[in-house]
């Protein structure tokens, strides 16, 4: 699903965020990305979501070399990725329902279908009764779950999460992780950046660790046949 081949990312000004990173995350796998802050976790996720472009090396997503994807094609690549952010990135001027329906509206689903799918997604994160609420009235954990519902409502093949439990207490964090696990069970490839090492250990999934932009630990294979 995701393949990094000697990927480097150097920001203007010379700061090297990623240095020769290679790994392969197979389809249907769920893995964690760890490392202290500034180690390059966010940069790695940004490269996959095409928010940033690699300076060197190849990055393949679902067999597509992302370097060859022109700017106008970026939105269509992103539509197959669900992204969960640490700070939720919800839109506070609209209801929970309208937040979650956004990816479907972008893809041009019909009205009836949108209602069905949004409710199914909210049901999965346990917020079916909150569809008419304003996000600001929800707790942090609930807001995060709205963000997750939005990330999975259009049934993407890949789910990326950047510190999804960063602001949550251990109990809530566990719930959120269980949620990711459920999506993974039905075939979604999941990559979660987190520095919650204890929780990661409990989950028992493969781990990739970054240290100052380089891979320091890799449970995944480096090449495609793993």
């Amino acid at each position: 699903m995701i393949r990094f081949d000697n990927v480097c990312k150097r920001y203007p000004g010379g700061y090297e965020a990623l240095n020769n990173v290679s790994f392969h995350l197979p389809r249907g796998e769920m893995a964690f990305l760890t490392g202290h802050s500034g180690a390059g976790k966010s940069t790695l996720l940004k490269l996959i979501a095409l928010i940033e472009r690699p300076s060197r090396g190849n990055l393949l997503l679902d067999g597509i070399n992302l370097s060859s994807v022109g700017n106008s094609k970026v939105p269509y690549i992103r539509r197959n990725i669900g992204i969960v952010f640490q700070n939720h990135h919800l839109l506070y001027d609209r209801t929970v329902f309208d937040n979650v329906s956004l990816p479907l509206i972008i893809a041009g689903y019909q009205h009836k279908e949108i209602g069905k799918r949004v409710r199914a997604a909210l049901d999965q994160v346990g917020l079916l009764k909150k569809e008419k609420s304003a996000p600001i009235t929800l707790s942090g954990g609930e807001q995060q779950r709205v963000g997750i519902a939005r990330a999975i409502v259009h049934k993407p093949g890949l789910l990326l999460a950047d510190e999804p439990t960063g602001n949550l207490d251990p109990e809530l964090s566990k719930e959120i992780m269980a949620l990711f696990r459920r999506f993974n069970d039905v075939g979604v490839t999941v990559l979660i950046a987190s520095h919650n090492l204890e929780l990661i250990k409990q989950m028992g999934n493969p781990v990739i660790s970054l240290n100052q932009g380089a891979l320091s630990h890799n449970d995944l294979s480096v090449t495609s046949h793993g």
């Binding site: 197959n80 509206i105 893809a107 041009g108 689903y109 019909q110 009205h111 279908e113 799918r117 999965q124 999975i152 259009h154 049934k155 993407p156 093949g157 999506f183 039905v186 075939g187 979604v188």
Partner: peptide
């Protein structure tokens, strides 16, 4: 949850999606 490949089924045709989007906006 179904796999991503089944996405196309409930999606409107491109033209219809385009028209729906315009009217909606």
């Amino acid at each position: 949850m179904v796999k991503a490949d089944n996405n196309q089924i409930a999606r409107s045709s491109p033209f219809k999606a385009w028209a729906i989007n315009h009217i909606r906006t």
